[in-house]
Simulated scan of single mutants.
Amino acid sequence: MESDLFPNAGTPPADNSRRSFMKQAGGIVGLVLAPPLVSQAERLTAFSKVIQGATDITLRVNGKAHSVRVEPRVTLLDALRERLDLTGTKKGCDHGQCGACTVHVNGQRTLSCLTLAVMSQGKEITTIEGLTQGEQLHPMQAAFIKHDGFQCGYCTPGQIMSGVACVQEGHASTDAQAREWMSGNLCRCGAYPNILAAVRDVAGKA
């Protein structure tokens, strides 16, 4: 009875075989025309420039030239701390979010954890160690002591370097302005009022 109602139930459509054939033929043609995976990888490699191995570079830090041997992936932060023993610059988040690694490059505040050492050649780099003149503290360093602008002290070098740049840039004319332009430097101890007081003190005397 069921076969009477659906006479073609057991027989596939006539075009089904043609459709299957076309799909199979298309797949075979695609495989034939597709480039081998190895040659494709070789072509991509030919267009990529890979730099490997350590390289001798010269970094001018705090007025002195230093020859260091680093791999291309080494950051300026690691070169300063591990190659030149300038450990005043701190490694905080290592993602450019806390500001603890702030240094000056050609007079501009720079996050050294996001800067490659090889890209810093030929530039004037100043770290927290380079602010002092012999035994004489920089006015910003003295102001941080005067206003007790630190607690644990870990973020202090970056705060001071940013504070110096903030004043030099003319971005410390008001409390609100100084807060805005110092907002990239974080203090987990929460010494912000004292840090602000130190920056504004120096800005008032500049």
Rank of each mutant, 00 (worst) to 15 (best):
L84M: 11
D85A: 15
L86A: 06
T87M: 07
T87H: 05
G88Q: 11
T89Q: 10
K90L: 01
K91M: 13
G92H: 09
G92F: 13
C93A: 11
C93T: 04
D94A: 04
G96E: 13
G96V: 10
G96W: 09
G96F: 08
Q97E: 15
Q97V: 11
Q97T: 15
Q97F: 13
C98S: 09
C98F: 07
G99H: 14
G99R: 14
A100K: 07
A100D: 07
C101S: 08
T102A: 14
T102Y: 09
V103F: 12
H104S: 12
H104C: 01
G107Q: 08
G107R: 01
G107F: 01
G107S: 11
Q108G: 02
R109Q: 11
L111R: 13
C113K: 05
L114Q: 15
T115A: 11
T115F: 11
T115W: 01
L116P: 03
L116K: 05
A117W: 13
V118E: 02
V118D: 04
V118Y: 06
V118C: 11
V118S: 02
M119G: 03
M119Q: 13
S120Q: 05
Q121L: 05
G122N: 13
G122V: 06
G122A: 11
K123N: 11
E124V: 02
E124H: 02
I125R: 09
T126Y: 00
T126K: 09
T127A: 13
T127N: 06
I128F: 04
G130L: 09
G130C: 09
L131S: 08
L131H: 04
T132W: 06
Q133G: 10
Q133W: 03
Q133E: 14
Q133L: 14
G134V: 11
E135S: 15
E135Y: 12
E135W: 07
Q136P: 04
Q136S: 15
Q136K: 15
L137M: 08
L137V: 03
H138S: 00
M140Q: 10
Q141M: 07
Q141Y: 02
Q141A: 12
Q141W: 02
A142K: 08
A143W: 01
A143R: 03
A143T: 07
A143M: 09
A143F: 06
A143K: 07
F144V: 01
F144R: 00
F144S: 08
F144A: 07
I145G: 02
I145P: 01
I145M: 10
I145S: 12
K146F: 03
H147K: 00
D148C: 05
F150Y: 12
F150G: 12
Q151L: 12
Q151A: 06
Q151T: 05
Q151G: 06
C152Y: 00
G153T: 08
G153E: 10
G153N: 14
Y154E: 07
Y154W: 06
Y154R: 03
Y154D: 04
Y154T: 06
C155V: 03
P157S: 14
P157I: 10
G158L: 14
G158F: 07
G158T: 08
Q159T: 13
Q159W: 10
I160T: 00
I160L: 08
I160M: 00
S162F: 01
G163K: 11
G163E: 06
V164G: 10
A165Y: 11
A165E: 15
A165D: 05
C166F: 03
C166Q: 13
Q168W: 00
Q168Y: 00
E169Y: 00
E169K: 05
